[in-house]
Simulated assay, not measured.
Amino acid sequence: MTQPTTRKGASRAADIPPDILAALERGELQSATLAECLALNQATLLRAVLPDLAPPAVRQAEAACQLGILKRMAGIGAVLFEELGPAGIARCQAHPSDTVRGWACFMAGMQPGPDLSQRLAAIRPLADDPHFGVREWAWMAVRPHLAADLDGSIALLAAWTAAPSERLRRFASEALRPRGVWCAHIAALKKNPARALPLLEPLKADTSAYVQDSVANWLNDAAKDSPDWVRALCLHWQQGEPAAATRRICSRAMRNL
């Protein structure tokens, strides 16, 4: 797996050097910022990295490129899964381009048939990808399936909270945020956030700031609908001599209260 780029990258699309954008669209370079990820022409990238794709599939993918970024990724993933099947997942997952690996996330997410445990097993290596963008696409790709079986998902993801990788521990929290970014809200967790305590409790003193921020954002989401619950939980967590990580999580969780 290609390691994440160490380029500083551009913070605005207008500032991306033409040679960098061209390399991104040839699949030779990973995006270093969200701006680069959003700016590249995915239709151009698709033709470069999958030149053997059938013309009708290319046209369908080009049509998906007219959509917003999440629907664009999902649409291209659907086209590729239809055209390449499960073997296409491994092909895209091994590619140096983070966007191509992002397509693999959605291909893995839309496989018909597998139960939740199999779906999570398929997405796990992508959830642990070195690139920040791929990790985001990973949870977005499976979130609809997780939300459809909330209790089953929470039970399975609870085991991820003990994973050695901070990326996987973060996935356990981030995938089921009540008001996740760029995705549909989960009404059941907005109404009753306590259902997710099997995920939040094990992470309340996580040593990774990457995980801490996710837990804090989870609670900040919940505070918009259940502020008293969030206050009570943070008060409970901070009794006695809480870890510095717990204090940081609670402070950030209640930043808008």
Results as ranks from 00 to 15, higher is better:
M1C: 07
T5P: 05
T6D: 05
R7D: 12
D15S: 12
D15K: 04
P17M: 07
P17Y: 02
A22P: 03
A22V: 08
A22F: 04
E28P: 07
L29P: 00
Q30P: 04
S31Q: 09
A35I: 06
E36P: 06
L40F: 04
A48F: 08
D52N: 13
L53M: 13
A54E: 15
P55Q: 11
P55H: 10
P55C: 12
P56H: 14
R59I: 14
E62P: 07
A63M: 13
A63P: 09
C65K: 13
C65W: 12
I69L: 10
K71V: 05
M73P: 07
V79H: 02
L80M: 14
G85I: 11
A87E: 15
R91N: 06
Q93P: 02
D98A: 13
V100F: 07
R101V: 07
G102F: 02
W103N: 10
Q111M: 14
S117W: 00
S117N: 01
Q118W: 01
Q118V: 11
L120I: 06
A121L: 08
A121T: 08
I123V: 09
A127S: 01
F132H: 09
R135V: 07
E136D: 06
W137G: 05
W137L: 14
M140T: 03
R143V: 06
L146F: 01
A147K: 01
G152K: 03
S153T: 04
A158Y: 00
T161S: 03
P164N: 04
S165G: 03
R169I: 07
R170M: 08
S173H: 06
S173T: 14
A175E: 01
R179H: 10
I186E: 00
K190V: 12
K191W: 02
R195E: 04
L203I: 08
K204N: 12
A209L: 12
Q212F: 05
W218C: 14
N220L: 11
A222S: 15
P227Q: 09
D228Q: 15
W229I: 13
W229G: 10
V230L: 09
A232F: 04
C234F: 09
C234H: 06
L235F: 08
W237P: 03
Q238S: 15
A244W: 02
A244D: 10
R248Q: 15
C250M: 10
A253N: 01
